[in-house]
Amino acid sequence: MSVLVFVEDWNGSFKKASFEATSYAKRWANMMDTQVIAVTNNSVSSSALHSYGADHVLQIILAKTGMGIAEQLGTLCSDVDGVVVAGTALGKTIAPALAALNNGSLSTNTISLPLSIAPIEVKRGAFSSKGIETIVLNGELPIISFVPNSIGIEEIAGNGETSAKDVSGDDLMEITEVNVASGKVALPEADAVVSAGRGLKSPDNWGMIEELANVLGAATACSKPVSDIGWRPHSEHVGQTGIQVNPNLYIAIGISGAIQHLAGVSASKTIVVVNTDPEAPFFKAADYGIVGDAFEVIPKLVDALRAFKAAS
């Protein structure tokens, strides 16, 4: 028996969330005294996975879509105690499709390791971070899809085995075009996010936001009205009806902190708010606040961070 983990590759290497998934699987497997099988694309060198807990790396030629990959994983699950999938865009298709194919019981949006293993219980976010649900997985195949960054990565050595296998999976459709902004930090798995709202007044003022993001190695985000008026792309809209994030650090600049915005960002570990209005509701959800004009505060903050980085 074993815990199977799906490991997503990215530009010839692995996503950070993939290491988190592998180390999640290892910690779960240890609770059950069993092994971790990491399933990954055959084109990627697997060695890094062993240091995060993969006992056995199974390389397959991955299908191109979540539906195809779910079918492939499904054929590998006959002798498996559980499956771990990171809640990336792709993982969000794979986990439920796999649950449907293999009569699994699935927790998505999971934010804890298993609290117990017989039966398997985990905590998951619900009501857009306004609630935490404890759920029991009592079907045949327990599947856990977790929120990237919510668990953390632990280095635990696994056995160093690797093998390859042929498994088929039907994509059911054809990819005609892929556009991925290169070199940009993807929002859902970013460690730090710099986000700005209508307080910035014009799309021309985002230079300082991008500069701050660069210094921090952060992804950029925005409030909903900012993407609605076209100042920033839709893919940067965070909140209840946008992307949900939970970075270590979320800096909100010129955002009032409406309940729908908070719903998508309040799981962030540390929240910094910069706003001219001392009554802005966001301050109630913040760890650190500055009442001040973004146009004065942000350039100074960029300088101070540069000085800090240079000194450390």
């Binding site: 971070s129 109630k284 650190y288 606040g289």
Partner: peptide, 20 residues
């Protein structure tokens, strides 16, 4: 194949620290 056992609210945030 799953059951909700329990719901709770997230722990309230500590008071914000203001910086000049």
């Amino acid at each position: 194949t799953t059951n909700a056992l329990h719901f709770e609210k997230p722990a309230p945030k500590a008071a914000v620290k203001m910086v000049e």
